[in-house]
C-alpha cells in the first residue's frame, strides 16, 4: 500500500464515519428512550476519553502521574466555580509544574 493510498483511504473512511452519523434515518433515533440514550452517548464517550487521557499509557497500560494531579486541580477549580479558562490553564500549569520538578 503506497503512502498516498494510506493517507487517502484513511481520510475517506474517517469522513464516511463522521457523515454516517448525520445520514442515519430519523426513524432510528425517534422516541423518548432512544432520545435519552443518544443524549447520554457523547457524555459517555467523552467521560471514557477523559479517563484514558488521564490514566492511559502505551499499550493500554494505566498510570498515575502529573495528568491526574492536573485533572484533580481542575475539579477543585470547578468546585470553586472558577471560570473555564482558569480551569484549563490551571490544570496545564499544574502538569507543567510537576513535570519541571521531575514528577510524572
Amino acid at each position: 500500500m503506497s503512502a498516498w493510498t494510506v493517507v487517502l483511504l484513511a481520510s475517506g473512511l474517517s469522513f464516511a464515519t463522521k457523515l454516517a452519523g448525520y445520514l442515519v434515518p430519523e426513524s432510528w433515533v425517534d422516541g423518548p428512550r432512544r432520545s435519552r440514550v443518544l443524549t447520554l452517548l457523547p457524555v459517555a464517550l467523552l467521560a471514557g476519553l477523559v479517563a484514558i487521557q488521564t490514566f492511559g499509557g502505551d499499550g493500554g497500560s494505566l498510570h498515575v502521574d502529573a495528568r491526574l494531579a492536573a485533572v484533580a486541580a481542575a475539579v477543585v477549580l470547578l468546585v470553586l466555580r472558577a471560570n473555564f479558562l482558569v480551569v484549563v490553564v490551571g490544570a496545564a500549569a499544574v502538569a507543567a509544574g510537576l513535570r519541571s520538578l521531575g514528577w510524572g
Partner: peptide, 17 residues
C-alpha cells in the same frame, strides 16, 4: 507535555462535562 497541553485537554473536557 512540557507545557501540560495533554492535561489541558482532559481538564477542558472535564469542565465541559
Amino acid at each position: 507535555q512540557r507545557w501540560g497541553l495533554d492535561a489541558a485537554a482532559a481538564a477542558a473536557f472535564t469542565a465541559l462535562l
